[in-house]
Computed example of a mutant assay.
Amino acid sequence: MASRKLARGMGTFFKSCDHPQAKWSKCPHDYKIRFRGPSGRQIQESGFGTQEKAIVRLTEVYDTKRRKPHSQAKAERIERYGLMPFSEYAAEWRAGQRHLAESSARQVDSLLENHLLPALKSRRMNTFDHKVVEDFVRNMETASIGVATQSNAFDKLASILLDAHRLGIFDENPLRGVKPPQYTPSRSVIPAPSQLAAIRSSGDHSFQLLVGLMSGCGLRNGEAAAVNIRNIVADDVYRVTEQVNQTAKTYGPLKHRKPGEYRDVPLPPRIRNAIEWYADKHGTTDGYLLRHPEDATRPFQPYLLQNQWQRLKKAQEIAIPEGVVIYSLRHFFASNCLSHGIPITDVAEWMGHKSIDITFKIYRHLMPGTLTQAARVLDLGLAA
């Protein structure tokens, strides 16, 4: 089989019959062409009745590659990633999630291992469309998976597929038109001020301090366990810089934050006085107020707060309302802010939520605004 090369990079045209090249013009067999595709793979096409048609096609391919280097790069990406199984693509995507806090990383790994990979691991990336995603959601519903887990699994799948969409694997977003699982958090049970006062006066000094930090400044229990007197940056401002990581059992970056990032929260005088009183009474270690009761060289562990909470509840030393948990102390902070007209955007920032959507879903019912109130306020402005 003879072939004829054109200019460098254009490819070749040939016939696969036994006729010599000199007889091609009179030979009834079709011409074939061979060229390198965008990814460097050799491609062969056939069905060209004349030499001129074969050359025209080779010229078109060559000109396209020269004119569109970006299209070539895109084609290479599509060819490489489009044929990947979901498991391999998800592993590459996961390796790029370096910003995740340890708890968030564990959640992602759990969702991949228990929900995404069992259902999708062998599927090629270029075969995803809205029907595949809808089937994934429907199968989770059929399996009676909790709505919160369904929502989280869908969010992770969406992140992976949107990443692939940006690479150009899909012509159309495979999530378009898909209705995600609807997760609405249950309404939070919030202690009344009198109930909070009873809780705040119970337990030992460390328990009382933690209750104050969570209900007065909105700290998570791990953040409260890392309380440091040096973080009082103004009379009315506390800077949250770290938390006690419940897995590593040592100090680490805040949730949804990179190492070194922080957030400033309001510091009510009552809580500042409690911090300063505790420091004077019990001393500090490098500014930290709380240490492990059995080993002062170790950080105070958040589970110790939970243990004391359970002991107080079991002993019925305080009347803890049904549904009130330790996290309800943070809910009290949000409720106290919103009921006094503090914007929900500020509350979301102070509580360290990743998105204001989370704050809105949990605490929308606490916001004092109603249509009737809005109508009255607007009428006042119109009458001015």
Rank of each mutant, 00 (worst) to 15 (best):
L329C: 04
H29W: 13
M140K: 05
T50S: 08
G352P: 08
A374W: 09
T184A: 05
Y278D: 07
I318C: 05
F86E: 03
A197D: 14
S328N: 08
A334W: 08
Y278M: 05
G37Q: 13
N152M: 03
I160E: 04
K32A: 04
F207A: 05
P368A: 04
M351Y: 08
H130G: 13
E79M: 12
S188E: 10
D30C: 00
I33Q: 10
A54P: 11
G252P: 14
G96F: 10
S151Y: 13
R257F: 02
A90P: 06
Q97Y: 07
R364L: 05
L338Y: 07
S3Y: 14
P343G: 06
R200C: 08
R138K: 06
M84G: 11
A22Q: 09
G381L: 05
L209D: 15
K23E: 13
S25T: 03
P28S: 11
S25I: 02
Q246G: 05
M125K: 13
A248M: 08
T59L: 07
G323S: 08
L289I: 00
V56K: 15
R263L: 00
N336D: 13
D171Y: 09
R166K: 13
P185H: 15
Q182F: 03
V61G: 06
R57P: 09
R187E: 15
A101R: 12
F128N: 11
P180C: 00
R8H: 11
H340E: 09
T127E: 13
A226S: 06
D280K: 13
I356D: 15
A54I: 04
N307P: 07
V325L: 05
S215Y: 10
R77A: 05
H282V: 01
F300S: 00
K15C: 02
I43C: 11
K179D: 04
L6H: 14
K26I: 00
Q208H: 12
I199F: 15
R80S: 11
D379I: 00
S339D: 12
L380W: 09
K249G: 03
L209E: 14
K26T: 04
W24I: 02
T59Q: 14
V324E: 07
F35P: 06
L366E: 12
F48K: 07
F136K: 03
K258P: 01
D63R: 11
R77V: 02
I145G: 01
K53M: 14
E79D: 10
A7V: 06
R77P: 05
H70W: 11
S188T: 06
L371Y: 10
E45L: 10
G287Q: 08
V137H: 09
I78D: 06
S201Q: 15
V137K: 07
K255F: 04
T345W: 11
A7P: 12
